[in-house]
Design a protein around this nucleic acid. Structure first.
Lengths: 212, 212, 212, 212
DNA sequence: TATGAATGAGGCTTCATTCAT
DNA sequence: AATGAATGAAGCCTCATTCAT
């Protein structure tokens, strides 16, 4: 029936608009810094009214969080893929690093936003959802790593030791790449990234660590 | 002469008040997140009027930057000490890590603030001063590391490869320690820190890296 | 279509509100002196919120300037009318004086504001626009006066000599009429204005001036 | 006695300081516009403490007024001199014009200030004093002019007609000379001032005015 | 559903004036 | 008398959110 079709098309368009808003918001945040972006600017970029944004999202913070959740979900897909292809440890670490490093500004934006939202205790439900995805990701990682420990590739410490240290290095690498210092001083960027990658990949290999 | 004494005492008290303001501001920033702290709140915490703050600092951003500069200067002192005692590489890396890890919230606050201030192009003179200190710190580090490369302890890559990777790991470690994930999941924190420390210390040792 | 109508009505109402704001602002400025009028007071007088004012005008200075531009445009219309009716010199001078004298407070307000805004280098674009209108007005005047010089009615000096001296006398007349002295001392105001008008009208007639 | 001497020297120094403050204030007002000059800046320029200013003057407005009164007193001296030397009408008008034109910025500053202070009803006693001097000046002028009317040089209208129209032209001349228009457009400034002067001098001569 | 005008709490900053020393 | 640190009222402006159409 035509009415139903119309309705579903409208629904699709509505969903589509949501996508556009998120995309536009992200671009603006990256370009100008989230503090300088107003809801009005986002609306204008999408070409809709400010009020319409509030039909899709309850608050501006919700926009922040939905973007962050998407990022975390992309990462989930990455791990999914790796787990399914039973990727080895080298590949895992490498992919993880590359994912993080790929779009440093975006990662840092979300990192900043999380600090802000946690401090403000804003939108706790969505924050919870974000953390759940993250926990699930961590679990996946843990499983992969446990397998490698059993194989004797990795040092036999609690798996999250490996997870966390890799996370830390990747996180730091991102921040570094955004720093003025890095962009001014480092000439051989490709060489450095290779160095860092190897460091990250080898980090935690067996025989490198002695328990106190 | 009594007048001179009085005058210098007043000057000392004035300087002291500046200290109090910075301290109070730092505490509030850490506690509530810088965005939720108003100049008025800082004044109230110190027990002075709002206007008085502006006798000491031109803008709120200046308060931010002075705190950041202090942090960087503390780090400069650390390197100074190490360089003078011709500390070996192990000690250097360890101290560096410990310094960063010591007060993660503070470090992250400053990191966030820097992103914000750079984006806003606010107080450029003070930002310049901050970066100068940082550059000087990096130079000190580089010198120490060059010595270790000559001794054959460290992999023979450009010294800033070592500096940067250590910086990244430490930076990431700090962020990790502030994350909800870390605080929820990691049980054996001491053990983990030890693990991370060793990772960091060993990172870049000779024989671990193969140039492509 | 009904929607379009509605939209244009809204637009009209919005424009209307702008008018109200400017009118209210002008009245308050005249009544209390611009320095004692806050944006909040203007809003209150119109019966709207403070923030709404800022939907119409970027800054308080912009309100000042828009009022000033209106005044200048009224004067432009006056000259236009005179030029079109090929008014003689007497009429020109007379109308010019009367226009200035009509609302002395308003003229003086704008004069004061201009000094302030020029000193502060505020809203330069609008100031530029104001000056452009003024220049165009001066040109019109010059053209009229050149015609009178050719006819031999006016002394043959650069036309702007006439323009400027008339401007000066009118400007001074306005200030005078606002002065306490004038309002206390002068009894026969009508008589005086007539005297001044004749002075102004005759000023610059041929045969009155001898070049050094 | 030494004590008395010291005391009187102190008193003299105190008076001297007052002078310096007024001078410094005037310079700053002219240079930067009165709104941008703070009491602190004045104190600094004189090389004394801010509090000291308030030993000399009750409020900032008092400083304004004292400067204005001085100006008016200078004008009183001018008229005194002219009256004593039984100066003719030409000289009177000329001197009056030249006095006004001599330092246009200063005159306009005071004009602006008076508008402000009257609107704010600030320091009414001093304002009264200012107006008293001004009235006395006007009287002197009137006397001179009455004599000229009797001599048949000037049109026989109420003397203040002459006073006021001269005042108005001079006032306007000052404003003109400060205007952007004047400074941009007028090339032959000397010629114009001569023209204006002759206009002013001849203004009100007998035979130029016809009563309605 | 879409709109965008309206809102007003809230932040930063200024500066004349006071007052304890 | 001289000082200058301290004050706090007051002003401008921003922007997330609401709501009537």
């Amino acid at each position: 029936m035509a009415d139903l079709e119309k309705a579903s098309q409208k629904a699709r368009e509505f969903k589509q608009r949501e996508e556009e808003v998120l995309q536009a918001a992200l671009e603006l945040f990256l370009e100008m810094g989230e503090d300088r972006v107003t809801v009005e600017m986002i609306a204008e970029k999408v070409g809709i009214g400010k009020g319409t944004i509030y039909k899709h999202f309850e608050t501006k913070d919700e926009i922040y969080l939905l973007l962050m959740i998407r990022y975390e979900e992309e990462m989930a897909q990455l791990f999914q893929r790796i787990e399914e292809t039973s990727g080895n440890k080298e590949q895992l670490a490498k992919e993880f690093f590359l994912f993080r490093i790929k779009d440093p500004k975006r990662y840092m934006l979300f990192d900043r936003l999380e600090q802000k939202l946690v401090a403000a205790k804003s939108v706790p439900e969505l924050l919870g959802r974000l953390h759940k995805i993250r926990a699930s990701n961590a679990e996946k990682l843990t499983r992969i790593i446990q397998a490698r420990i059993k194989e004797g590739v990795l040092e036999d410490v609690p798996p999250y030791f490996h997870v966390c240290s890799a996370w830390a290095l990747a996180h730091g690498a991102v921040a570094l790449m955004q720093s003025q210092f890095y962009n001014t001083v480092i000439e051989d960027k490709e060489g450095f990234i290779d160095f860092l990658l190897q460091t990250g990949i080898r980090m935690g290999n067996r025989g490198q660590y002695k328990k106190k």
